Computed example of a mutant assay.
Amino acid sequence: MAFPNLYTHRKVAETKARSCDICFKLSSSVLITPDNKDWFYVCPAHLKDPLFCTPKIDQAAIEARKKLELEAEIERVKKEYEEKQRKKKEKQEEGEKKEDAAEDKKDKDNKPGEDSQKTLDKKEAGKDDATPSPVEEEEPRVFELKNIFYQQRINKKRQAEIARRNRERMQDPTFFPSVPKNLPS
C-alpha cells in the first residue's frame, strides 16, 4: 500500500490542466511516484517552497553538466586564441603591405577605405561566431515531500482504498442480512 516518498515532476498539456491539490489553481505540473501508484497536480511555485518539498539532486547529472560546460568553455577559449592569432597574422601582413604600398604609392593610387571596410566586416563576423550560447539552468525533476504532506498523501490513498472496498461490499448480495423465514413464536 505504501509508496516511496520520491516524486518526479512532469508537465502535461495545457488542455489537460487540473486544479492544484494545495491551492486549487489550474496547473499543468504533475508529481508522480516512480511506480505510478500516486500522482497529483501541483503548481510549479509549490515545488520551490522548502516547506512543501525538497529537490533530490542527481550527482551524476550534475557532474555530466559541469563536464559539458567545461568542454564548451575550453572550445570557446580555443576559438578566441585562434582569432587572436589570426588577427596578429593579419596585422603583420598589413604592415608588410603598408611598406610595399608606401613604395608603390608613388606609382598608383591606393584605396584604403575599401580595405578598412573589409577588416570591419571580418571583425563583426568574428564577434558573432565567438558569442557562446547561454546554458539553461535545469530545474530539479525529482522531489521528496515533507512528512506532513507525505502522510496526507498516504491517508488519502488509504481512504480511497477503504471507500473502494466498501463499494464492492455493497454490490455483494450477501453483505446485507436476509429476511427471517421462520415465524416468530
Score class of each variant (00 low, 15 high):
residue 103 E to M: 07
residue 48 K to N: 04
residue 62 I to K: 06
residue 101 A to R: 10
residue 64 A to P: 01
residue 100 D to I: 07
residue 61 A to I: 08
residue 91 K to H: 13
residue 50 P to Q: 00
residue 68 L to G: 06
residue 46 H to F: 04
residue 91 K to G: 06
residue 62 I to Y: 05
residue 92 Q to K: 10
residue 67 K to I: 01
residue 79 K to P: 01
residue 51 L to S: 09
residue 66 K to P: 01
residue 50 P to Y: 04
residue 69 E to W: 02
residue 91 K to I: 15
residue 67 K to Y: 08
residue 52 F to M: 00
residue 59 Q to L: 05
residue 76 R to I: 03
residue 108 K to F: 15
residue 60 A to R: 02
residue 79 K to I: 10
residue 65 R to W: 03
residue 85 Q to S: 09
residue 107 D to M: 06
residue 89 K to Y: 12
residue 106 K to G: 13
residue 87 K to F: 15
residue 57 I to D: 01
residue 97 K to L: 09
residue 92 Q to A: 06
residue 58 D to I: 04
residue 51 L to F: 12
residue 74 I to W: 09
residue 62 I to D: 05
residue 47 L to V: 02
residue 62 I to E: 13
residue 47 L to K: 00
residue 81 Y to N: 11
residue 50 P to E: 03
residue 69 E to Q: 10
residue 65 R to M: 06
residue 84 K to M: 10
residue 77 V to Q: 09
residue 108 K to D: 09
residue 90 E to L: 12
residue 65 R to S: 06
residue 54 T to F: 02
residue 46 H to A: 00
residue 107 D to N: 09
residue 80 E to P: 00
residue 68 L to F: 14
residue 81 Y to E: 11
residue 82 E to H: 14
residue 99 E to K: 11
residue 86 R to E: 12
residue 75 E to I: 01
residue 55 P to S: 07
residue 64 A to D: 05
residue 71 E to N: 13
residue 51 L to M: 02
residue 104 D to L: 08
residue 50 P to H: 04
residue 88 K to Q: 15
residue 59 Q to G: 05
residue 68 L to M: 13
residue 59 Q to D: 07
residue 95 G to I: 06
residue 85 Q to N: 14
residue 83 E to T: 15
residue 82 E to K: 12
residue 92 Q to G: 08
residue 98 K to Y: 13
residue 54 T to I: 03
residue 98 K to T: 14
residue 81 Y to G: 05
residue 77 V to Y: 08
residue 96 E to M: 03
residue 58 D to V: 04
residue 83 E to L: 14
residue 57 I to N: 01
residue 106 K to C: 07
residue 71 E to R: 13
residue 51 L to T: 14
residue 59 Q to S: 07
residue 61 A to D: 12
residue 53 C to A: 15
residue 81 Y to L: 12
residue 97 K to T: 11
residue 50 P to V: 02
residue 66 K to I: 11
residue 86 R to T: 15
residue 68 L to H: 15
residue 68 L to V: 11
